[in-house]
Design a protein around this nucleic acid. Structure first.
Lengths: 352, 352
DNA sequence: CACCCCTTTGAGAGCGCTCTCTGGCCTCCG
DNA sequence: CGGAGGCCAGAGAGCGCTCTCAAAGGGGTG
């Protein structure tokens, strides 16, 4: 702890007070506080001293009023279900965002959407100029969020490729996503390289682009996978188990499975063992996400496709900051930075 | 969606613009925007119309500058581990906070502490007058947070009873907690009412007041529980299993267990079944928290002590708002509202 | 009918900061 | 030695809002 000076009883010291104490003008203090460019060294020190002695902290509201910069970014949680926030995926992403925001001296304002009727409030808040920008997670196709954000005219970045129908209307919102398709391709190729010939796929929900991209990657490699090799899941453990049972019924001869996430892979693993099938000897299994709490806990540990979730969160912030700076340089039609696709990496463990 | 009026290209309309449009003074518009007390009905309507037409939204910074109210509250997450945020307990509490904050027209600023060195930043932020108050979670005894908060002179409310050593120094920070001790008593009494005679306890970490309070409750009822009936856990599933094994070794004759949380109860349950002991026939089991995702998923479903977690989150906000209003009425030494203890409720399922 | 009081509105002074513009001083060059 | 130019500091005008205070108008009462 730095020895914080005794805070003035009552009100906080202002620029004016610091100026008086240092025997300079308000403008000079302001310059020093904001970096001190163009001020003689002697004065800089004198002002710094006065700041220290008085325990001066700039008034944020006053500063915002004139600079039109809030130093705050909204993070919108649009998922109504409880589960979402306790999703480790989410946690890591928000953590990355928090860290990067701190590095940019910005605050994280959490906007939790309480059902569809709440979008009005969110829109009003975003439009009200309380935050410099917004970060949102594109989860489902039919999300109203993108249009709300566009209407509020607030710079935004999405986590995950948005897939809403009217995506082409208006300026596209940049997003950060991992290379779902490429990662899936790598997973499937890995299975093929192991000599597997009948590789099945447990797909994620149809209204999430990440799930669809992973399926596309699977199909990129297996142009004609043959019938009965794709089963539908919804990213839950239970659905993975169900899908696995289904696949086994349709194609008892399958020798490999690529599940669209680790949770479904773990469900599939359970069913495989119940049926007496050995992993990876009889059936090789690959997941996606590398949620270590899952992938390392299974028996055998899961081979999976890793994505740098926290890094994606940080990237979202950097992208937003770039939009913000571009806007500042040339308001309105600026060269909007494009989206970012982060690489994935196959993590080989024991299941394939 | 309300048909949001076409936002003015470029800058946002100001009070001045609305005033001009409605043919009144700035002061009148301000009054209408803030409730409209003391303004003729005809004028109120005229102003409302102008606001609507122009799509006017008050500038938050300007308002804050004069009212000294930010309309924002910091929520401090001081837990360094990843796990914490994905803890369903946490999620529910934050959700409650978010909801209640919305009802009070306040925003949630998330402050995630990044290790001990980060307390400086937090302190500076809190002291900088960016938020009206702070909410924090008192997790461990040795937390620096309380002193940081006190130094920053920002009104705060804790979630969970703080247990730091110097709690008595300075004005106490109000907190919201559930009746851990009473709930524990009820759990143990229930076990006794079932005719159980050797009731063991799996305790939580020693540096968390909630865990200690639950143990105290256990001991309130079982004044002399006898040796070997208390085992130490750390709130994780794994530790519950370990503690159960230990208890079984020391007291093979035990016929009931009260675990300090559901997660440990579920670990204990696993061990009991592995040893071939039937629940509840041979050993009755009661947990704490009523995390339904755990308590309802076990076999048999867990009898446990419920606490209204979301409600506690909401209560934290209400308490803070009361402090804020008291401060406003009479700054400085105000009648600080006391802490709140919420009731618990025994939820009977099949395990006891 | 005069006076007083209450209600409603407007004028204007800030809140604390940034930023432009002006002016003084010094240095350097012709 | 005079003028041009550069560097630094200060003066002052807002940013958009709230809030006090004064003024105006209307009604009731002595």
């Amino acid at each position: 702890m730095s020895p914080m000076p005794e805070p003035a009883p009552g009100s906080r010291p202002t620029l004016e007070a610091v100026a008086a104490r240092a025997g300079v003008s308000r403008a000079t203090v302001s310059r020093v506080v904001n970096g001190g460019a163009g001020v003689r060294q002697a004065l800089v020190e004198k002002v710094r001293e006065a700041v220290e002695e008085l325990g001066y902290v700039p008034n944020h509201a006053a500063r915002t009023l004139v600079t039109r910069r809030n130093g705050a970014v909204a993070v919108i949680i649009a998922e109504p279900e409880f589960r979402v926030f306790s999703d480790p995926f989410f946690e890591q992403q928000v953590r990355g965002i928090s860290r990067e925001l701190t590095a940019h001296d910005s605050q994280l304002v959490l906007l939790w959407v309480e059902g569809p009727g709440d979008y009005d409030r969110i829109g009003r808040y975003l439009g009200g100029g309380h935050v410099d920008g917004a970060l949102a997670f594109s989860v489902h196709d039919d999300d109203e969020l993108p249009s709300i954000i566009r209407r509020a005219q607030v710079p935004a970045v999405f986590g995950g490729r948005p897939g809403w129908p009217g995506a082409t209307a208006g300026p596209a919102v940049p997003y950060v996503d991992c290379d779902n398709r490429g990662g899936a391709r790598e997973a499937v190729r890995h299975l093929l390289s192991l000599g597997r010939e009948r590789v099945a796929h447990i797909a994620g929900p149809r209204d999430q682009t990440s799930a669809m991209d992973r399926m596309d990657g699977y199909q990129d490699v297996l142009l004609d996978a043959g019938p009965g090799l794709i089963a539908q899941g919804d990213f839950t453990e239970e659905s993975g188990a169900r899908a696995m049972a289904e696949l086994l019924e349709q194609r008892p001869d399958l020798d490999a499975v690529f599940a669209a996430n680790d949770l479904m892979a773990s469900g599939a693993l359970r069913v495989l063992r119940e049926r007496g099938l050995r992993v990876p000897e009889d059936v090789a299994l690959v997941g996606f996400d590398d949620m270590t709490s899952i992938a390392e806990a299974t028996d055998p540990p899961l081979t999976t496709v890793r994505q740098d979730i926290e890094g994606m969160g940080r990237l979202m912030v950097r992208l937003l900051m770039r939009v913000l700076n571009a806007d500042e340089a040339e308001p309105g039609a600026g060269s909007a930075p494009g989206s970012v696709i982060t690489p994935t990496e196959l993590v080989r463990r024991a299941s394939a």
